[in-house]
Every structure is written in C-alpha cells, then in structure tokens.
Amino acid sequence: MSNNGSKVGCWIAISILALLLFGSFLTNVGLMAAMFAGGSSAAAGHDYAEDQYPLYDEVWSYGSGETKVARIALSGVIMRGRQERLFGHEPDMVQQILYEIRAATWDEDIKAILLEVDSPGGAVTPSDEIYAALKRFKAADEERVVLVFVRDLCASGGYYASMAGDYIMAEPTAIVGSVGVIMQTLNMQGLGEKLGLSSVTIASGENKDMLNPFEEVDPEHIELLQDLVDSMQDRFAAIVQASRGLENRELLDGRVFNVEQALEHNLIDGVGYWDDAVVKLAELLGKEDLKVIRYYQQMGFWDSLFASKTPTVPNFSMSAEPPRFLYLWKP
C-alpha cells in the first residue's frame, strides 16, 4: 500500500509540475503577444489612413546609387482571396501588390518600379486593377518609369498588367502572350441522367440560370456570354495595341510566344537577366547606378508564430464556385 501510495503521490507531483510549466508557458506567450500588440497599437495611433497610405519597412536589395527603385513581384495566379492555413492565413496577393504599388506612388523618392512577373494571368478585374495602379504611379511623376522583367511566364492577365510598363525585358527561356479571355465550366447533364440526378432551380428569369451544369446548354446563353467575352477581349487587345504600337490584332488571338518571336513582333523590348534589367532601368532613368529596395512588412506575433509553418487548409468548395471570366493561360 505504501508503495502504491508513493506512486500516486509521484504522479500528482508530476501533474502539478506540468500544470505549472504549462501555466508559465501561457504567461510568457501572453506577455510576448502583449508586447507585439502594444507595438501595433502604437502604429495604429498614427493619424493617417492605413489602406490609403500603407507603410512598409524597406530592405536594401541591390545597387549603391541614390536613385530609389522599388522591386515588386507579380507572381502566381492573379486572384483575390486569402489562402487559409491551419492557424492564420496568407495575405491576399492582389491586395498585397496594390498596396506595394500605392506605397511606391506616395514615396516621392521612388523613381521607378521594377515589376518582376511570373504569372499565367488570372481574374479580369484584378489584372486591370494592377495595370491601373501602375499607370497611377507614373502619372504622379512624369519622370517615373516602370520596367517589367519577365522571369518565366508573362501570359494573359500577367501580360495585361505589364502593358503599363515602359520597357519589357524577358529571360531567354520565358513565354509571353496569350492575349485573350476564357470562361469554362462543366456540363453534367448526361452524368446526371445516368445517376438519376436532376436540377431543381427557382429563378426570376430565363437567363438567371445560365450554364446550369445539369441542364442542356442553351445556345442563346452561349451567345450572350460570348458577347461579354468579346467585349473584354476588345478592351484587352486595344490596350496591347496602344501600349506596343501594333497595327492590327492578328497575333492577339490567345497564342503564346517564345522570346525570339515576342521580340520580333514587338511584344517585348529586350532579352536578358535580372542584372541586365537593372542596367537597362538605370539607362532609362539616366543614372549610372540605382538603389533597389523591396518592401517588407513585419508580421504580428500570432501570424509569425503559426502561419508560416502550418499547412494550408484544403478548399472543398472550389467545385461549387461559379464560372468566371478570366485573363488566364490554361494549356
């Protein structure tokens, strides 16, 4: 009995010690969180609109000149929405790019943006938003320049946004182009009939239920949507024609080009690597050397603790998303 009693006492002591250690851990975490929150509160106390005037820390990236250039990455599919993680989330990539361009626009010392593109394109409106933001950056100072540097892929919406550039340089193995609009969906009427599934839809009009996957495709619906696709393509092609000085739209039919073909057809201005892009940008600005910076925003305590090391959460609702118009290369 005494032996059993001593074991019970030992386990009780261990449990109490574990609780004390866990309590100490929570206390330390709380103190650290309070410190970070205190810093954030101090920053939030500034008298300015945070979304209108986003603030970033600057990392000196390249060069030793006095003329400041901001390097901004346009990478991946151009789509709004935050990728959820098990704890926290990744930022909205479109919002991030727009904020960085806005920060550069308000900084009078920034004389150029080096836009590094590696994107197949994406949604129509976000691509146009990035293009418009770059145009506003240049409009704020007539001496400003935007140089687009294509790393691997600059297609569709990525190319659309690049039309705000004064000069486009692509790496020798890059792919460029795909000027066009696409809209895709699935029709499962045949499968539904085999499985005994049918659609029950209550709509306010005959066109409200367009592209119902369990109904036969209506040619009139296709015609209506084709008109929308054509109007979006007209805008895309007109912007490319004006920016690149093209006489017609013969090549603007969705095809992609290697750099030799793109250079031949005036879809880009030069071929080179990142160092070459910096040299060319200095030349455009009339400077011998530049000071290239990139933006960095410190993460909050919980974001830095959890978000960067936790897995992403699968989005099981993707199949339920409606079809959308895209400036996207989808080979």
Results as ranks from 00 to 15, higher is better:
271 V>S: 10
174 A>S: 10
241 Q>S: 09
271 V>R: 09
232 M>K: 15
160 Y>I: 07
183 M>H: 13
60 W>E: 15
83 Q>I: 00
256 V>W: 06
265 H>A: 11
64 S>A: 13
199 S>E: 13
3 N>T: 11
259 V>H: 04
29 V>E: 02
127 S>N: 00
106 W>E: 15
13 A>E: 07
43 A>T: 08
160 Y>F: 10
38 G>I: 05
197 L>C: 08
120 P>L: 04
8 V>W: 01
29 V>T: 02
179 V>K: 00
104 A>I: 06
5 G>S: 10
267 L>V: 08
41 S>W: 06
98 L>C: 09
199 S>I: 08
207 N>Q: 13
104 A>F: 02
247 E>T: 15
34 A>T: 05
103 A>C: 12
173 T>Y: 01
18 A>L: 04
74 L>T: 03
109 D>K: 12
156 S>C: 11
34 A>V: 03
298 Q>F: 03
54 P>Q: 04
256 V>L: 01
51 D>M: 09
260 E>H: 14
178 S>F: 03
28 N>C: 10
272 G>M: 05
87 F>A: 12
320 A>V: 04
315 N>H: 09
154 C>M: 14
4 N>P: 00
41 S>N: 08
28 N>S: 11
310 T>N: 12
157 G>A: 02
295 Y>E: 05
166 D>K: 05
191 L>W: 11
89 H>F: 08
277 A>K: 04
172 P>Y: 06
20 L>D: 02
84 E>C: 05
204 S>K: 14
74 L>K: 05
79 M>L: 11
133 A>Y: 01
321 E>M: 14
89 H>M: 11
300 G>E: 11
118 D>I: 01
304 S>L: 10
182 I>R: 07
281 L>E: 06
207 N>T: 14
182 I>A: 09
140 A>K: 07
70 A>L: 09
173 T>R: 05
42 A>K: 06
154 C>K: 07
325 F>K: 01
249 R>P: 04
251 L>I: 03
216 E>T: 15
89 H>L: 07
133 A>W: 00
